[in-house]
């Protein structure tokens, strides 16, 4: 038998190889990914609370809604037109840990929510005035009349009609608005460390300070602090 075929020689070489591998492998392998139930925590995507649909927590339809007053924190709010619908439908989704309260008081639909996804379907025929305050979340709205929209640390995409006056106040946010108003819209814009970029009937960019932009019977007060606001204006 050749010396290299001796079993103790072969096993000896294997033992040394194991010793060597035991040092080399942990040195060259990447750090393990710690996983918990639900997937790895290592590469957590940035999720706005409630941005994942989760399960339906609440669903109700309301008639005779003249106005919507909404406050949402750490939530995603979607307000959409629904052609053919005659009622306002509110659905709230979540994955647990969220809170919500929906109530209708003398024509005003009041929605308070945190850590959930709020979906509101509006009748397509008639826009409804919207007063909304969204913190640490996202607001997507269409088919509304602009009353007051406040965004803090959030994102927004709002398509609204302006009737006489409205207010957009945003801080540490990024949002785009599409505003339409009969006879034109005048913007009273204030910007601090941000920008208000206006397109549509007229084009203007305000990076700091104050400016009156455009003209018309409808006035929108715009305040942008550490925020980029893109506003498309169209007179009807």
């Amino acid at each position: 038998m050749s010396e290299w075929k001796k079993p103790e020689r072969i096993v000896g070489v294997m033992a040394l190889a194991i010793a060597l591998l035991a040092i080399i492998l942990p040195a060259v392998m990447p750090a393990p990914s710690l996983r918990l139930r639900g997937g790895p925590l290592v590469h957590l995507p940035f999720n706005i609370g409630g941005s994942e649909e989760g399960r339906l927590l609440y669903s109700e339809k309301f008639t005779g809604v003249d106005r919507i007053a909404l406050q949402a924190a750490n939530s995603l709010v979607k307000i959409e037109r629904s052609e053919g619908a005659s009622e306002v439908a509110v659905s709230i989704y979540g994955k647990g840990g969220g809170h919500y309260n929906v109530d209708k008081r003398s024509g005003i639909l009041v929605v308070n929510a945190s850590n959930v996804l709020v979906k509101i379907e509006l009748p397509g025929s008639k826009p409804i005035p919207l007063t909304a305050r969204v913190e640490n979340g996202m607001l997507k709205a269409e088919g509304v009349i602009l009353d007051t929209i406040v965004l803090e640390n959030g994102m927004g995409a709002v398509e609204a009609r302006v009737v006489k006056s409205g207010r957009i106040i945003a801080s540490n946010s990024f949002a785009k608005f599409a505003l339409s108003g009969k006879g034109g819209i005048k913007l009273e814009a204030h910007s601090l460390n941000g920008a208000v970029s206006v397109t549509g009937d007229y084009e203007y960019t305000l990076t700091s300070g104050e400016a009156e932009i455009g003209k018309g019977p409808n006035t929108v007060y715009v305040e942008a602090k550490n925020t980029y606001l893109s506003i498309r204006v169209r007179g009807q």
């Binding site: 001796k6 079993p7 103790e8 096993v11 000896g12 294997m14």
Partner: peptide, 14 residues
């Protein structure tokens, strides 16, 4: 007896 044989031997022919 080489040390490599000793190591292997202690595992296969103790």
């Amino acid at each position: 007896m080489k040390i490599i044989d000793q190591i292997g031997g202690l595992l296969v022919k103790p």
